[in-house]
Design a binder for these strands. Sequence first.
DNA 1: TTAGGGTTAG
Length: 613
Amino acid sequence: MSRHCMSACNHFMKPNLVKSLSSSSPRFSLPHLHQFSFHTSSKKDLTTVTSTHSNFIKSGLSNDTFTTNNLINSYLKLLRISHAQKLFDEMTHRNVVSWSLLMAGYVSQGQPNMALCLFHQMQMQTQGTLVMPNEFTFSTLINACSILASLEIGRRIHALVEVSGYRSDLVVCSSLIDMYGKCNCVDEARMVFDFMCVRNVVSWTSMITTYSQNAQGHLALELFREFNHFRLGKPNHFMLCSAVSACASLGRLGSGKIIHGVVIRLGHDANDVVASALVDMYAKCGCVSYSEKVFRRIPNPSVVHYTSMIVGAAKYGLGTLSLRLFQEMIDRRIKPNDITFVGVLHACSHSGLIDKGLELFNSMNEKHGMMPDPRHYTCTVDMLGRVGRIDEAYQLAKSVQVGSEDDALLWGTLLSASRLHGRVDIALEASNQVIKSNQQVAAAYVTLSNTYALAGDWENAHNLRSKMKRTGVFKEPGSSWIEIKESTYLFHAGDISKCSQKREMLNLLRELEGRMKERGHVGVTTGLVFVDIEEEAREEIVSLHSEKLALAFGLLNTPKGITIRIMKNLRMCRDCHEAFKLISDIVQREFIVRDVNRFHHFKNGLCTCGDFW
DNA sequence: TTAGGGTTAG
């Protein structure tokens, strides 16, 4: 018998316990068993738990539900799900705790489907009376649906919650908010939140996170402000993390800095996840140097910290910094994950480091034992496509078997590259593949049409546009916005009528356009028509052009380091680059342009990452 | 004896 086992037996056979066991019926001996199992559940040693388990069997009292539940719990804490399942299977009387415990065990060990199966069994159980789920069961099941993003089952469980009388339970409601959020049903999450009689910091955080994770960062920050304004509690690291993340998604440097201040004041700056969110936020707000400062203060950076930093640097055009960080993490024996590789491949792609990028792509399997997935193939196709190695990119894309959503990304990437390099043949094939995937169809039509237009094939370009109109395929016009101090200025393609400084802006735009004409860049504008707007009218060419320049206009009034965000549908053309270059000449300072994928750092009129030229 | 919220992706 091991020392642990002896120790457990000695404890079990202490005189007072022996006395009560010998002088009482088994019924009265239960409290001691409860005490015993409670004691063991706090232990983290498998030997102790198994010896306790064996003592229960020897005692002949192992049919006790309460005690067995405690043992199941002990095994679950030791991540021994099979032991817990075996005990559960052998139980003669399972109660709601037994079921809920095992469900929670499966959820925490990444098997949420098993929890749902158990619930199904629980409802079908014929042994004794039917066990009814309680608030613990529901919150665990909702958590399982959240992980699986299973809206249908989640809604069914929500219905059961309503009829079972647990609709006012704080934990159940927070789980529901989280589940709806993870299933991208923001309105349903908000309904649960609004119907809650009592809320706590967790329920507020769940709602803030739902907004933040569903591209509604402004609502996340609004709710965060409301929580603080009404002094409903002290934000904890979970809530702060989501608020920082919301700032990152909006590119709100000012708010991000304020929240960073709150993080420090409340002593959450040492929290790893908060630090990671801050690294990401500063990078997305165009302050990679701040990201690096936060990153370098993390005592033991994890793979997520490194990845945040690698991705941030990559988007900023600092490919060599990304690669240096990647090497650093390898040297520190921190294993890169799939997202790290997406980041580092992205870095190579946008910094023209093709050989290094291909080497990394090949090393994924060879050195790191990781199979590249569609995202890695897409990055590599992008890498080859950007430098004009379209045929190689095409061959690589053809070699991948992916699902429809990934197909659209993969072939959409090749389509963009084909347009950039005027390869109508590959663009046609790529657009067919995108259309076949039934995702991003409108974008594919527009890009193909632009490819034709750039190649001078106006007939096909026009035919494609007509087809779009005929079949009702509509591409949402792009929009851009710029934040100057506390205000956000939003521009829609071809429309600056709502802009408050319209007159002033138009005057400047005329001046800029005049200077652009002098430099002979207006002729290229025709390509831009098909890239960004739906109508081919000449007037709109001018106004679209103006819109781009309007974006740049903000630079004149902004401090150094302003970030311009350009949304997905607005692609940079040479004219716009020239406009930015001109403005840079005028303002004589550095500035940063951010588009959906990356930052472009301009200095003295040149994009330092070389992406534009 | 059992349950809820946060970070990195083209």
